[in-house]
């Protein structure tokens, strides 16, 4: 594994600010009073069991869902209060890597990557678009897949292309939803390295949603542990797991057994 570079985190600038965030689906309360600050240049890992509301959290940040109550501020803007146009403008600064990659399976890789670019930067020439695609594919190490269809790629390659598609707009914030889910350990390490490279090269601030401890350890500058809709602990990896709380120790031990 490539050692993570020491990131430049600007703790004076908060890019994402969540306050007293609550979200329910019918009778099921998923998030109950979440508070979180993400600083510029920081990778924050949200750890938690499947179904604990981790993905809901980042969907609230990007405006795909609306909170029941509480505040979601991104670059100082209250996301739920934004109109469609303002939300679209804000989303240009946010990259979202989906758990299942969400590549458009009717388009080849080149068209997948060109899609957000053509729609958001309408004044770009064909040559500039091709150059941007080439660069971003180089960055994720998949230049040879340019004319392939998503169905022809492996799970790890799809994840990389999914990340490349978000990077093409040069976002300031990256949201990763389970980036290593369903991947073998070696491919997971490649994805972890890619997340760190993206942070270093594109100077992004990120939220990484995962239940994979190796991913959390290798990519996170700070970890927060989501249990029963609330953040139980936060800090560096060792700090978070240095506790007698059975809910956190149990999560750690379970992953430890799986890894070994």
């Amino acid at each position: 594994m490539i050692k993570k570079e020491t990131p430049h985190i600007d703790r004076t600038e908060t890019v994402i600010e969540l306050r007293h965030l609550r979200k329910s689906f019918g009778a099921l309360t998923v998030l109950q009073g979440i508070d979180l600050d993400v600083f510029r240049g920081e990778n924050v890992v949200v750890l938690g069991r499947s179904g604990s509301g981790k993905s809901v959290l980042i969907k609230l940040i990007v405006g795909l869902l609306k909170p029941d109550s509480g505040s979601v501020r991104v670059f100082g803007e209250e996301v739920p209060a934004l109109d469609t146009r303002a939300l679209q403008t804000l989303r240009k600064k946010i990259g979202f890597s989906f758990q299942g990659s969400a590549l458009y399976d009717g388009m080849c890789i080149k068209d997948n990557l060109a899609f957000p670019l053509v729609r958001n930067k309408r004044n770009l020439s064909r040559k500039q678009i091709d150059q941007a695609i080439e660069k971003v594919l180089d960055d994720v190490g998949l230049a040879h897949t340019v004319y392939q269809m998503p169905a022809e790629l492996s799970g790890g390659q799809k994840k990389r292309i999914g990340i490349a598609r978000t990077l093409i707009l040069e976002p300031e914030i990256m949201l990763y939803d389970e980036p290593t889910a369903g991947l073998d350990p070696l491919t997971s390490i490649e994805i972890n390295n890619l997340i760190n490279e993206v942070q270093a090269r594109y100077k992004t601030s990120s939220i990484i949603i995962t239940h994979d401890l190796s991913c959390a350890k290798s990519t996170g500058d700070r970890l927060v542990m989501l249990v029963d809709g609330q953040f139980l602990r936060q800090g560096k990896f060792e700090e978070v797991f240095d506790t007698a709380d059975i809910r956190i120790r149990g999560f750690y031990n379970y992953n430890f057994i799986l890894d070994n």
Binding site: R91, Q99, G106, N120
Partner: peptide
């Protein structure tokens, strides 16, 4: 089938978050 598949594989969400309607 096409839109249904796009919906369940989050492709529609992906389009939305990349600032496309």
């Amino acid at each position: 089938a096409e839109l249904g598949s796009m919906k369940v594989t989050e492709q529609i969400d992906a389009m939305e978050v990349s600032s496309t309607n």
